[in-house]
Amino acid sequence: MLRILRHALRKHVRVQLMEQEEVVRLFFPIHKWEGLQELHKKTRHLPQSHLFQLNMPDNVSEYFGAHVAAYFHFYNAFTRWLVIPAVFSAAFPFVRPHIPTHEAHRLDSCFGGFLCIWTTVFLARMKHTMNEKLLRWGMGESVQNVTPVRKNFKDELRGSCSENLRNLLHWTLVILFLSETVFFSRFIANWRGELFENPDGMTFGMQNTDAAKYFKYLVTANIKVVDAV
């Protein structure tokens, strides 16, 4: 309604110029009391019990619009998704004192890898659900900006053997590149461990303790090469 009103006003007056000339002081929507009361009933206990209410952003969108509701949707989804790493991180202080140091380092590495996967999945899922919400809330222009249809997209190929083969190749490449990164990093970590166990030795004309420091850059180089490929 506000967008339609602004569009109609622009045909006859310029609100921004009127504000500059102080013909009007402010231009803003006033609250609709009945709608505000209805929203208050739906989200009365928002900070406590409604953190996990799935339809809460939809209720906000009905009154405040899609832009405000998008923030609540992100906040709502992020809070729910944080429960998983929060449970694991809460258990760490109780586990670490009872395991050896090297096992604690491995546990930290595993948790770091888990967070990388968790972040990737969350961002992908968040983008998908946000586009779905924008479509539901009628933000057509915003959806077209963030989800353009590719020129080579063909709807009739959905579920076909060609699409299945493309998906199989895609995930094969994903697993291949991820496996290469894991195995290469593991190889460098083991090699550096051997160098630290023999600090007086020489590798590539350098003392093992110095060579072990430079070997860390091989991990970065591998990331750059894999990214370019």
Results as ranks from 00 to 15, higher is better:
P93G: 03
I30W: 03
P47D: 03
G35S: 08
A124M: 15
T129K: 04
K151P: 08
R14Y: 07
G65K: 00
E180H: 11
F153R: 05
H45F: 12
F64N: 06
F28S: 13
F114S: 01
S49C: 09
R6K: 15
W171R: 09
G201P: 04
H73V: 11
A66H: 00
F187P: 05
E180Y: 02
L115S: 06
T101F: 15
K224R: 08
Y71W: 13
H128G: 07
R106L: 15
K151S: 06
H102E: 14
G113I: 03
G35D: 03
L54F: 10
P199L: 10
K133I: 00
A86R: 03
A228P: 02
K154F: 04
I99E: 02
M56C: 06
L115D: 02
T79K: 06
E38C: 09
Y214I: 07
K32C: 09
K133P: 00
L5A: 11
H170R: 14
Q53I: 02
R44W: 11
F52Y: 14
E19K: 12
R125F: 14
K224E: 13
I4F: 12
T120F: 10
E180N: 11
W118V: 05
A104P: 03
T203K: 04
K154P: 00
G138L: 05
R96L: 13
D210K: 12
K213M: 11
F196M: 13
T203R: 00
A104Q: 15
V229M: 12
N76R: 09
F94K: 06
H170N: 10
E62V: 04
T172Q: 13
I4E: 14
R25A: 09
F88W: 04
L123D: 03
N167M: 10
D155G: 09
V229W: 09
H45R: 14
S142Y: 13
R136G: 04
G35W: 01
K133A: 12
V219A: 01
D155Y: 14
F78V: 07
Q16C: 05
R10M: 05
F27S: 11
I99T: 02
M1I: 07
A66Y: 02
L134W: 11
L17T: 15
Q20W: 02
K151Q: 08
V229P: 00
L107M: 12
P85G: 03
F183H: 01
N198F: 11
